[in-house]
Each structure stands twice: as structure tokens, then as C-alpha cells.
Amino acid sequence: MARRASAETTDVPADVPADVSADVPAAAGVRVDWWAVPAGVRSQVEASLGSPVETAVTQAGGFSPGVAARVRLVDGRRVFVKAVGPEPNPATPDLHRAEARITAALPATALVPSLLMSLDLEGWVVLVLEDVDGRTPAQPWRLNELQRVLAAAAELSAQLDPSPIEAPTLADRIGEDFRGWRRLAAAFEEGTDDLSWLDPWARRRLARLVDREADWATAAAGRALIHGDLRADNVLLTEDRVMVVDWPWAAVGAAWFDVVAMGPSVIMQGAPDAMSVLDRHLRARGADPEDVTTVLIALTGYFLRKSVEPPPPGLPTLRGFQRAQGEAALEWVRERTGWS
């Protein structure tokens, strides 16, 4: 009989104090233990793997309201299992299906764990991936680890430019979500939100932010395959590699987009001299400064507007994380625009 493992995480290095970044929201949702998955689904997964599960150690990072576990099988093999059912968030199974399609189609040389198999069973979607013996970057960020991740982002975008697979453009993938400033301005005009929660600098420049945001899709256009959700909790550091995980939001766009999208979380999580490091990296990659600022403005509006919506089912911590990212992004916007 398979033995249950108590839920724990190996994501945080032992030399990082437990109270580091206590005021920074964690990229962590509500996980489901492997042993809570319906027995019929677990049996089918084990049959497909050809061995029962011996231990399953839940990993804490990330927002998906499902299973994310490092699994050891009775025959000694190790795999990583992601699984989600129709509850509590009915949109998540489709995200897992998208991740399976995208990951399976990526080149074998990409810095991405291999998909070993995926199953659709009783409303549950299960992904079994290569288990990577690594950890997420330390929090707050260490400069050398941030530089490793930025170098990996550049390498990955070079591997995936032009995109080797069919995927929607960033404009099609994100759509109206990157019209956050426009929606906030409309709510203010309609009297449904007085925006008293918004930074006074942004309130005074709301019309200007709305105007600049309108050009984001043109600024973000490109031919590279973009991860679309790059953050510390979607990165694994090994001794000699950086692996990027969780690909359901992949889209085609500017090769530098992922670094801009990651930037607010890096700033929020206390990376040393974060804005300068990010700006230097983007300049070195030849990203047009005006395009970067335009995309950053749209990203900031997205985070801030989303942060005032009710939390999605099963994702109670998401809005607080988005608010913190939005506030960090706004500081970066102020720095880049120099608007008085």
C-alpha cells in the first residue's frame, strides 16, 4: 500500500530566514494534497505510470487550486504531478489542458521540464512532468540569482523566436484585460469607484495613463513565444540550469515581454536595485524604451484594476498579490516616465 507523505515544501533554501519579506504577499494559493484526489483518478494515474505512488510532497508556490507535488514511485522513479478538478475553480482544468498542449509542443532543448504524460479523468486533468531537482529563487531576491534568471529568459526567448508552435498573439491572449486604466477612469466617471485607494500620483495622471495604455498591443507585438506569467514561483534553479515551469498563458509577442511582466514581482520581492537591473537588461536586449514603458503602463493598470475585483473561486490570495505587484509596477512607471 502506498504511504502518505505529510505536506511540506522544499522551495525555500535553508539559509533564508523564516521571517524574510514578511510584509510581501506570497505567491501561494490553496493546494490539494495528492491523497485527496479521487481514488479512481489516482489509480488510473498509477496504472499509466506503471507503479504506485509511494510519497507525494506538496509544493507551496503558485496559485493553482489543485495538486502540485513531487512524487516518488514505489519503483524508485521521481516525477512531478499537477492535477486539478472542476472545483473550486472551473476555469483551471482548461488551463492545465492548455499547459499540456504547449509543453508537449516545445522543443526538447528549451529550458522547460518535459511533459511525460497528461490524462483527462472524471473531470480531473492530470499532468505528469519531469521532476526537476531544484528550488525557486530566494526571497528577497539575491542579485546573482536574478541575473541567472534574466540570462535564462534571454536564452529561452532566443530559442523560441520565432515561435515554434501555434499560439495566440499577446493582444488576443490578454485582450481587454490590458485596458485597466481605461476601466478605472470609466468607473470614476460613472461614480462606481472614487479611486480613493489609488496612489495620488496616478489619480492626477489618469488621463495620460489611459492614452498611453491604448498603444500597448502595438508595443508588445513580436514573433517570439512568451511564457506570459514569469515570476519567481514559476522558476526552478538547479546547480547548472534555470528551468521555467507552468506554461498555460503562452502567447506570441515581443521577446522582452516576460522580463517586463516579471519586473513588478521582482521589485515587490526586494531584489537589490531592481529597477536599474531590469532596465539595464532590457536595454542590453535592444528593447525599445518607449515600447517597454507603454507595456509597463498597461501591465500596471491590469494589476491595479484586477486587485479590486472579488477573488476568483479557490484563489483567495491572488488579489492581494496583484495589488502589491501593481503598486511596485507604478513605482517603476514613475521612474521610467519621469512625469512631473
Rank of each mutant, 00 (worst) to 15 (best):
D172E: 14
E155A: 14
S196K: 06
R142I: 05
I165S: 05
G180I: 14
Q139K: 08
R208W: 10
P140F: 03
A202C: 06
R205N: 12
T136I: 11
F178I: 09
R203A: 10
L156V: 03
N144C: 00
L195H: 14
A167M: 03
L195C: 10
E155D: 13
L156E: 02
A185S: 15
L195M: 11
A158W: 00
F178H: 11
L150M: 06
T136L: 07
T136Q: 10
P137N: 03
A158C: 00
A151Q: 06
F188C: 13
G134E: 03
E155I: 00
D199S: 07
D172A: 13
W141T: 10
F188T: 10
L146R: 08
W141M: 13
R182L: 11
I174M: 13
A202N: 01
R173I: 02
V128R: 00
N144R: 14
A187T: 11
A154I: 04
V132L: 10
D211G: 12
A152D: 03
A167V: 07
A152S: 09
R148S: 06
W197V: 07
W197E: 06
T136A: 11
P164W: 07
R204V: 09
G175S: 06
D193V: 08
L206H: 04
D211L: 12
A167P: 06
P200A: 06
R135Y: 00
V126P: 02
L127S: 02
E130C: 01
E166V: 11
L170C: 04
A167H: 04
E145S: 11
L143R: 15
